[in-house]
Design a protein around this nucleic acid. Structure first.
Length: 497
RNA sequence: GGUACCAUGGCGGAGUGGUGACGCUCUGGAUUGCAAAUCCAGCCACCCCGGUUCGAUUCCGGGUGGUACCUCCA
């Protein structure tokens, strides 16, 4: 455990950056609202998952891999799923199983670790029913025409997370007539509702039906992350900023009332991706699916692009951003290619030369940036500077008044490389072999690796004959395939642009 | 109507009460048969108006602009 590191997180509830202090450093808990699995996830969904993944990785680094428990749910019962199942004439489980797998595969391509737990809503009906029952018995929820609603007036702090008050919410309320008639207050939200005849249904003391959207998270948090021993409060709850209201507000209300304890000590919300100065959203139809993007870009490029903005801010999602991400990663992978993975992953070299004074303490500051509310941007900046030094082969800095250039000793180079790669790995980057990275995936209908090698051999002969016309002709063939040749001292290598 | 966040160079995006992060792009040079890669050099910014201060991009007030939430959404 790295005890000297102090992580600070911006807490939406208190609207300030606070030092993170877990309830128990031996068991740090975090929950992230996962997807409703009825179609492909988009890159905005990925941003939330990647932000949570970085947090997960940092927590694991600080407290130890075995001391962090991360739960991310799968919502596998929902109106949209039912609609999709009807349209396709299949059971909802076929749809949810398929898209849950795709979601996990897509995130894996983006370098996300699997959460410790991935609870499914349909596997926790008992827990939801039990919690709803308790809320009814304790007077926080009421039944009405087969529905169960949470009475928001029974929870004094309702609206605290999003900065709303009940009066303000009434003004903005857009509630259908039928629904309004069933409720005591417009802002009351549904915990349980009757299912239509053919729809999936579960038995409950208050009538057969299915749960509202919010109750599953409260019930699954209780089930997977809390216990009598540790109490009902988890350390961190995260998700997209749109979930602040109503989803998280409602989770807070129902969990507080059911357990008489806060749901989470820290609330972490990520900002939205922008598409042409407008938020990416399913209702606007301007979404980019992770699945589609992976056809063109390496998952690491997508991850890098997501990490190039601080997680709380808006981030413009453009081709230019992706191109920049790729170019930068190319530069980083060049270091691996240049130094060789054997050297980097080998033992610390013996070095008989005098150790040069170290002017840069760059290698030590990565984690401090990361611990400052997950400032991945500064980490990337520092890594880029370190990459520059590694590429040059020397430190630069000031010794008193005069600038100095100090070539690396082998030992120092090795240590800096380890720091460079280790930090990138902590961010979930530089996970590939450089050769694999540069050659990329063969495009459909493009040249095969064997054909490429053949043409390169032809060109080598032409160059030996000083037949520059033929040589350039072959280069043009490659250029049309978006393949770039590099004539080095040891022969010609190639990569996909 | 209510609430929240944001405003930095061609683009992305940090940070700071006083020497203009960093990346990408671009320009010039070195190198190369030509390239690529690499190296060197260079260009370019802190929304507006007040206030505090010796000094503000950074603090305070006002304005303007942008985005989001109050409805399924990461």
């Amino acid at each position: 455990m790295a005890e000297t590191l102090k992580l600070s997180l911006y807490d939406t509830m208190t609207r300030e950056k606070r030092e993170f202090v877990p309830t128990d450093p031996k068991r740090v808990t975090m929950y992230c609202c996962g997807p409703t699995v009825y179609s492909y996830a988009h890159i905005g969904n990925a941003r939330a998952a990647v932000a949570a993944d970085v947090l997960f990785r940092v927590l694991r680094h600080i407290y130890g891999e075995d001391h962090v428990e991360y739960a991310r749910n799968i919502t596998d019962i929902d109106d949209k799923i039912i609609v999709a199942a009807k349209e396709q004439g299949i059971d909802i489980s076929e749809i949810t199983t398929k898209f849950a797998k795709i979601y996990n595969d897509d995130l894996a391509a983006l370098g996300c670790l699997m959460p410790t737990y991935q609870p499914h809503a349909t596997e926790h009906m008992d827990d939801m029913v039990a919690m709803i029952e308790k809320l009814i018995v304790d007077g926080y929820a009421y039944e009405s025409e087969g529905h169960v609603f949470f009475d928001v007036t029974k929870y004094d702090d309702y609206g605290k997370l999003s900065g709303n008050t009940l009066d303000q919410l009434k003004q903005g309320a857009r509630v259908g007539e039928a629904e309004y008639a069933r409720k005591k207050n417009a802002a009351d939200f549904v915990l349980w509702k009757p299912s239509k005849e053919d729809d999936p249904s579960w038995d409950a003391p208050f009538g057969a039906g299915r749960p509202g959207w919010h109750i599953e998270c409260s019930a699954m948090i209780k089930k997977t992350l809390t216990s009598e021993k540790y109490g009902e409060t988890i350390d961190i709850h995260c998700g997209g900023q749109d979930l602040k209201f109503p989803h998280h507000e409602n989770e807070i209300a129902q969990s507080n009332c059911a357990h008489n304890a806060p749901l989470a000590n820290y609330w972490v919300h990520n900002g939205f991706l922008q598409m042409d100065a407008e938020k990416m959203s399913k209702s606007l139809g301007n979404v980019k699916l992770i699945h589609e993007l992976l056809e063109t870009w390496d998952g690491e490029v997508l991850r890098f692009a997501l990490l190039s903005g601080q997680y709380r801010g808006e981030l413009d999602w453009t081709d230019s951003l992706l191109k920049q991400a790729k170019n930068t990663l190319d530069g980083w992978y060049r270091i691996l290619e240049q130094e060789g993975l054997e050297f980097i992953s080998g033992n610390e070299p013996e070095d008989i030369s005098l150790e040069a004074p170290v002017l840069s303490n760059r290698a030590n500051c990565f984690l401090n940036y990361l611990c400052d509310d997950l400032n991945t941007v500064n980490v990337i900046s520092e890594l880029s500077q370190l990459k520059q030094n590694l590429s040059n082969g020397y430190d630069n800095g000031f010794d008193g008044s005069s600038p100095r250039i100090i070539p690396f000793s082998l030992k120092r180079k090795w240590n800096l490389l380890r720091s460079f790669v280790g930090t990138a790995n902590l961010l979930g980057l530089l996970q590939k072999d450089p050769e694999e990275w540069f050659r990329g995936k063969a495009q459909e209908g493009g040249l095969t690796d064997a054909e490429i090698d053949g043409l390169i051999a032809d060109r080598a002969q032409a160059r030996a004959d000083k037949d520059w016309g033929r040589s350039d002709e072959i280069r043009d063939v490659f250029a049309n395939e978006n393949i770039i040749l590099e004539d080095g001292a040891d022969g010609t290598t190639w990569r996909r642009g």
